[in-house]
Simulated scan of single mutants.
Amino acid sequence: MNYFIIFLMGALLIYLSYIDLREKRIPNMIIGPAYIASTFYNLYLFFNSRENIVYSNFLGFLFAIGLMLLIGIISKGGIGGGDIKLYGLLGLTFGFQTVLKIIVFSTIWGGFFSILLVLLKKKKLKDSLPFAPFIMLGFLTAVFTRL
């Protein structure tokens, strides 16, 4: 993995987590340019890399978007559109294997904190939580377990 890209995505996820905690939304004004930058990154990889990373990245994007849309439909809005787009961005940037790890780790982090908040009576079982912070924690866990 490219450490510069990891750093940029980490910074973006920290910022988006802050916004999601404060406003309970992930702005398209931030996600849109990030998708454009990731697309250019993939074009760079395509023309300058000996590996077929771009195919994994495209597959990661399709997998993340498809899975999260399915979860959103089945759960009747249990996951927000911003979170779906954020997972897609991570898939497009880091590929299938990494986005799969991010999904698993962020689900574990989200479940852990949800149970903790319910046990501490800070939230009720039906309450929603902004999920970008857990996606960020899942990303960091996936990246640091790979290094």
Rank of each mutant, 00 (worst) to 15 (best):
Y3W: 14
F7H: 01
L8S: 02
M9E: 03
M9G: 01
A11K: 07
A11Y: 08
L12V: 00
L13F: 10
I14S: 06
Y15M: 03
L16Q: 00
Y18Q: 05
I19E: 07
D20I: 06
L21P: 03
R22T: 09
R22M: 11
E23M: 06
K24F: 11
P27K: 03
N28P: 02
M29F: 01
M29E: 11
M29V: 04
I31V: 11
I31W: 00
G32R: 05
P33G: 07
A34T: 02
Y35D: 01
A37M: 15
S38D: 08
S38N: 13
T39W: 14
N42K: 07
L43G: 14
L43A: 15
L43N: 13
L45Q: 07
L45A: 03
F46L: 15
F46N: 01
F47M: 03
N48D: 06
S49K: 05
N52W: 09
I53K: 12
I53L: 14
V54H: 05
V54K: 06
Y55G: 09
Y55C: 08
F58K: 00
L59K: 02
L59D: 05
L59E: 12
G60H: 10
F61K: 11
F61M: 13
L62F: 15
F63H: 03
F63P: 04
A64P: 03
I65W: 13
I65S: 04
L67M: 15
M68E: 00
M68W: 03
L69Y: 13
I74M: 14
I74L: 15
S75F: 04
S75H: 02
K76H: 10
G77L: 12
G78Y: 14
G78Q: 12
I79M: 12
I79K: 04
G80M: 10
G82N: 00
D83R: 01
Y87R: 02
Y87V: 02
Y87Q: 04
G88D: 02
G91W: 09
G91E: 09
G91V: 11
G91I: 11
G91P: 07
L92V: 02
T93D: 02
F94N: 08
F96I: 10
F96M: 11
Q97I: 08
L100P: 04
V104D: 04
S106F: 02
T107H: 04
I108D: 02
W109N: 01
G111S: 09
F112K: 05
F112M: 15
F112C: 03
F113M: 06
S114E: 06
L117R: 09
L120Q: 11
K121M: 13
K122Y: 12
K122C: 01
K123H: 00
K124Y: 02
K124I: 01
K124D: 09
P130H: 03
P133M: 07
F134K: 06
F134H: 11
I135Q: 09
L137M: 15
G138E: 04
L140Y: 12
T141W: 13
T141F: 12
T141G: 09
A142T: 14
T145S: 12
